[in-house]
């Protein structure tokens, strides 16, 4: 295979004037764009690359980092930073207020627990997700950039894994940083280290579950809707409509005293599912009507459904890319 690496200046039996002469092309090619002074640069010959090729694992990590940064508009135009940064600030300011209120009211605990805070901020998180997921998944499909990835050592699985992990991480940061603000504030206000640490840790677990599930759903929708704007709308609908529907049904169940029904209905939307999980397993207060909590059977079902949804949406996402070939 080595002979082909030797520059073969003489192999062209049909060098046509102005066609194959090295150097000549670049000058005509840059006509209009390049200035005079660049002729010197032109003549630097081609240099091969003998350095390391770091392979799939490295490419996956690089793609993860790029997509994670992209979810906050980093490494993109100034305009793309505005929305994520604005939303991120909107996420953090109320957390600081929660701390301030606890300090001024001299209360023994924060008025809002960690996981509860995430659930309360769902509208903001939804908007962020609806912007970030299409950014991570739709653009490469819309502009047909995916073939360039798949023509490299990276596999489709690597691509999906890196992007999904990045969206999950972005969402985790989006929800966990406000909790960190609350936690640091609570410690500064001397609200009881052990208790706060336990609740904060539970809050972080909740953020992770929240991010994993929501990123999977949003990623799949975004990968199905390459067209501009469609993904944004579809994700907002997918996250809010089931949530309000389930909440409304739970409200009806509460007024008719069917309290176990409230628990069962909660499996029906990602938001209520996660609410049930955190009140049952992560020490948070229930956001359900009548502060209904789950019994043991319901708890088990919630966990099974959570895992099933994760498996389902990540599989669907992967399947989507099996088709999106070159």
């Amino acid at each position: 295979m080595s002979p082909d690496r030797t520059p073969a200046h003489t192999t062209s039996p049909h060098a046509v004037p102005g066609q194959a002469a090295p150097g000549q092309w670049e000058q005509s090619g840059s006509a209009g764009a390049a200035g005079r002074g660049q002729d010197v640069i032109h003549n630097i010959g081609y240099r091969g690359y003998e350095g390391p090729r770091l392979g799939r694992g490295y490419a996956r990590r690089a793609l993860f980092t790029q997509a994670l940064r992209g979810a906050y508009g980093l490494g993109r135009s100034a305009k793309s930073k505005v929305l994520p940064m604005l939303l991120f600030a909107t996420m953090c300011v109320p957390a600081a207020l929660v701390v301030a209120i606890a300090v001024f009211a001299k209360s023994k605990d924060l008025q809002v627990t960690y996981s509860e805070y995430v659930l309360l901020m769902q509208p903001i998180i939804g908007i962020y997700l609806a912007a970030a997921a299409p950014q991570a998944f739709s653009l490469d499909l819309r502009f047909r950039t995916t073939p360039l990835y798949f023509s490299r050592p990276l596999t489709r699985g690597d691509y999906v894994a890196a992007k999904y992990a990045a969206l999950t991480a972005a969402l985790f940061v989006f929800t966990a940083v406000p909790l960190l603000i609350m936690y640091v504030g609570a410690l500064l206000a001397k609200l009881g280290v052990a208790h706060q640490t336990e609740k904060f840790a539970q809050g972080l677990v909740f953020c992770a579950l929240f991010a994993l599930l929501h990123a999977a759903i949003a990623a799949w929708i975004a990968a199905l809707t390459p067209r501009r704007g469609f993904g944004v709308a579809a994700i907002i609908v997918a996250i809010t409509v089931p949530y309000f529907l389930v909440s409304a049904l739970q409200g009806i169940a509460a007024t008719t005293d069917k309290n176990t029904a409230i628990g069962w209905l909660g499996v029906g939307s990602p938001g209520t599912l996660l609410d049930g999980v955190q009140s049952k397993f992560l020490g948070g207060p229930s956001g359900f009507p009548a502060a209904q909590t789950l019994d043991a059977a319901q708890g088990a079902v919630y966990l099974v459904v959570l895992v099933a949804l994760l498996a389902c949406f990540t599989t669907l996402l992967l399947r989507r890319y099996r088709k999106a070939g070159l």
């Binding site: 082909d4 690496r5 030797t6 520059p7 073969a8 200046h9 192999t11 062209s12 066609q19 194959a20 090295p22 092309w25 005509s28 090619g29 010959g45 081609y46 091969g48």
Partner: peptide, 16 residues
């Protein structure tokens, strides 16, 4: 023509 010339160079100058 420019693209074709460039392609020729990919082999003659770059050895690819």
């Amino acid at each position: 023509d420019e693209m074709l010339g460039l392609i020729r160079r990919v082999h003659s100058d770059f050895g690819i």
